[in-house]
Amino acid sequence: MGKLKALGSRVGSMPAKVKAAPKVAEGFYSSPAWRALVADRKRDPDYHLALQRAKPGERMILDHKVERKDGGADLDPANTEWLTFSEHQSKTAKARAARAQGRTWGGGSKV
């Protein structure tokens, strides 16, 4: 049997990379209650400890120890901790991986 030589690809060429959609923060994080909690927590010692861990110019993020998606309390100061941006990225990746495997991950800043 012969090969079909005249039939070209119907798909065409694909782009080398597909850009991710820009992240859109949940409305909760713009709420007056959350903004007030962030302002209050900036006075706590763990904010200054996180600043010491941060790289020059690195952002600080008030993070939920147990993520809201996993049932963590929205506005409980005991469920929040200050993380550097890089610490937050690492923790979020671990939580997503655990959630994808059907587990919840209640890890704190010890990433």
Rank of each mutant, 00 (worst) to 15 (best):
A36W: 03
K42C: 10
D70A: 14
G12Y: 07
A25E: 13
P15Q: 12
Q89N: 12
G107E: 01
L37V: 09
H48R: 08
H88V: 00
K55I: 03
G102W: 12
K55T: 05
K91T: 02
K19L: 11
R68H: 11
Y29E: 06
Y47T: 03
K23L: 10
R59E: 11
R96V: 06
R59T: 02
A98W: 06
A21I: 02
D44T: 15
A16S: 09
E87T: 03
G8Q: 14
S109N: 06
H88P: 00
K94V: 06
A100W: 03
K42S: 02
A100E: 14
H48W: 15
Q89D: 11
K69E: 14
P77K: 07
A73F: 01
R99S: 11
F85N: 09
A20R: 15
G107Y: 00
R59Y: 10
L37K: 05
A6T: 14
R99K: 10
G8S: 15
G27S: 08
A39E: 13
S30R: 15
V11R: 12
H88R: 08
S13K: 08
D46T: 15
A36G: 04
A16G: 02
P22M: 01
A93C: 03
E26V: 05
G102I: 08
D40L: 12
A73M: 09
D70G: 06
A36P: 00
S13T: 14
K23D: 00
A98Q: 05
A39N: 11
M1W: 12
V66P: 00
K69Q: 13
D40Q: 13
V24A: 13
H48E: 13
D44A: 10
F28E: 07
K19V: 04
N79Q: 05
A98D: 10
P56D: 02
H64G: 08
G107P: 02
G72C: 03
P77H: 09
Q101E: 15
R96I: 10
A39G: 04
K65Q: 08
L51R: 15
H64R: 09
A98C: 10
T92V: 05
S109E: 01
L7V: 11
R35A: 13
A6P: 00
A54E: 07
